[in-house]
């Protein structure tokens, strides 16, 4: 039994942002609050450009800096190893917002506390998948035991890319099937 985490097949992602919308719907997120977000990147130059998308959320890291830095213990590891947040304990100091290299925790002005992807623990506890996983129209987001995911979708999976922080910092529970152009360090983010 390995850690639980997300698998993302970047090769087949068309960047439609349905996962992002399903996440907003599930979490009733206000504008500016995105627990999952798709970003689009471009490499190369005309007439041989390339492009890829990245759908990112909380990576439920093994060495989660949000948990380490949290002064209240609100950010914690659940029994299944995912990083969860106790909203009652959170005081809205936003230290986790600074600490997470992935930008996962987000301050929610209205409620005065931070929120982040909880990998839809309530749904998973009922035997369902996270909302984003079941929403994906390309069927490229999966959540589960990382060892099993690696076995199923390996072998060329990564957990860091030029667009991502170095994995050794937090040990993200994330496996990405990269697209070849995503290893190009000369990338440009596009607000499409």
């Amino acid at each position: 039994m390995g850690k639980l985490g997300f698998y993302f097949d970047m090769e087949a992602c068309i960047g439609c942002r349905t996962c992002q919308m399903a996440c907003k719907d599930k979490n009733n997120s206000d504008i500016n609050v995105l627990f999952r977000r798709v970003k689009s990147f471009e490499t190369g130059v005309y007439p041989k450009p390339d492009a890829y998308n990245y759908s990112g959320s909380c990576n439920h890291c093994s060495e989660a800096k949000c948990v380490q830095g949290c002064p209240t213990g609100a950010m914690h590891y659940a029994e299944d190893g995912t990083v969860q947040q106790n909203k009652d304990k959170c005081i809205g100091c936003q230290y986790c917002v600074w600490n997470c290299p992935y930008g996962a925790p987000q301050y929610i002005e209205k409620s005065g506390v931070v929120g982040k992807c909880d990998s839809c623990k309530d749904l998973r506890d009922n035997g369902e998948n996270p909302a984003c996983v079941n929403a994906c129209i390309m069927r490229i987001l999966h959540f589960g035991d990382l060892d099993e995911l690696k076995q199923k979708y390996g072998p060329n999976l990564v957990n860091e890319l030029p667009i991502l922080p170095i994995a050794s910092v937090t040990q993200p529970s994330l496996v990405v099937k990269p697209k070849s152009c995503s290893s190009d360090r000369n990338y440009r983010e596009k607000e499409v």
Partner: peptide, 18 residues
């Protein structure tokens, strides 16, 4: 869900229907 017999999954706009 399978490629041969796919679910009728909706897109982001449908997810924002409400």
């Amino acid at each position: 869900d399978s490629p041969d017999y796919p679910q009728q999954r909706g897109c982001l706009r449908g997810r924002a229907q409400r």
